[in-house]
Amino acid sequence: MLQTVQKAAQVLRLFTPHQPEWGVTEVAAALEIPKSGAHALLRTLAAEGLLQRTAAGRYRLGWALFELSQTLLDSSALLRAARPVMERLVAGWGETTHLAVLVDGQVLYVEKLQGDRALEIVLSGVGKRLPAHCSGVGKVLLAHQPWEVVLGIVERTGLVSFTPNTIKSVEQLREELERVRQQGFAYDQEEVMVGLCCAAAPIRDESGHVIAAMSLSVPAYRFYPNRQRLTTAIVDAARRVSEELGYYQEDWAWENGKRSRSRSSVPGISVPT
């Protein structure tokens, strides 16, 4: 039964925006299983509404998945906490803000809000994926993974180069992730798209684990002169979401010769000048 469930999940993962339709023979070849097994899997998933069969006998994703995705979006504590904060960011800056998680070693965008001053960003969008090494949110998410996990991701996906600024070596990636981990935020400086930059910061759950990342994406000519303010804004926004999810760190500070307790959500944050 477990193998059947695994194969069913593998079938669903085959469907992408680049190839939204599959036939029995193609599925059998992709999963290296007999055609009879592929046919049985596709037919069963279609009967449950997870796939739909076309008039040509091929298969597409079914509407039951849309229903399930809406349930996920409506019930997600992360999204409930992040949306109001993202809305305030967009209202204040007029730029685009993203919320992303790490799935299969890639950045998966789970929310995107675009402001009235924002540059159109076609590579990102709710449900879209990008390699993690070249985006601000991706660097944040990778920086809080064990290095062995990061190496495994690089071995599987490589270091795809989008622009001359994209990280091109494992050593360069390691140095960048260490810097991100130490300072508490990350930049994408025209690494995915020439003319586009972003600042990103981690979101933590109540146990302190980094579960997501949030970013502000800004045209390069507006980013560089405002980098300090943008960094402060996104770090504060991510901190607020983390607090909504129950995360905080109590720090001790000395005031007037007495030790007092202060509340700080994300340790190690510094803002460059």
Rank of each mutant, 00 (worst) to 15 (best):
R58H: 14
R58Q: 14
Y59T: 00
R60A: 03
R60G: 01
L61V: 15
G62A: 12
W63K: 14
W63F: 14
A64G: 01
F66Q: 09
F66E: 01
S69N: 14
Q70M: 13
T71L: 11
L72T: 00
L72A: 08
L73Q: 05
L73D: 03
A77P: 07
A77G: 07
A77N: 11
A77Q: 12
L78T: 07
A82Y: 02
A82M: 04
A82D: 01
P84N: 02
P84Q: 02
V85E: 07
V85A: 10
V85C: 01
R88M: 11
L89T: 01
V90D: 02
V90T: 15
V90Y: 07
A91H: 12
A91G: 07
W93M: 01
W93P: 04
E95P: 10
E95R: 02
E95V: 12
T96L: 13
T97I: 01
L99W: 09
A100S: 15
V103P: 02
D104A: 06
G105E: 09
Q106E: 15
V107T: 06
Y109Q: 08
V110K: 11
E111V: 03
E111Q: 13
L113A: 10
Q114F: 05
G115H: 01
G115R: 08
D116R: 01
A118M: 02
V122C: 01
L123H: 01
G125S: 10
V126T: 14
V126H: 00
V126Q: 09
K128V: 03
K128I: 05
R129I: 00
A132R: 12
H133R: 13
S135F: 08
G136P: 08
G138M: 03
G138V: 08
K139L: 07
L142H: 01
L142V: 00
A143V: 05
A143L: 07
H144I: 02
W147H: 12
E148Y: 03
E148I: 03
L151K: 15
G152R: 11
I153M: 09
I153Q: 13
R156F: 03
L159T: 04
V160K: 15
S161N: 10
F162K: 13
F162P: 09
T163A: 03
T163S: 02
P164F: 15
N165R: 15
T166D: 04
T166P: 04
I167M: 06
K168C: 09
V170W: 00
E171A: 12
Q172D: 14
Q172W: 07
L173F: 09
L173C: 07
E175H: 09
E176C: 13
L177K: 10
L177T: 08
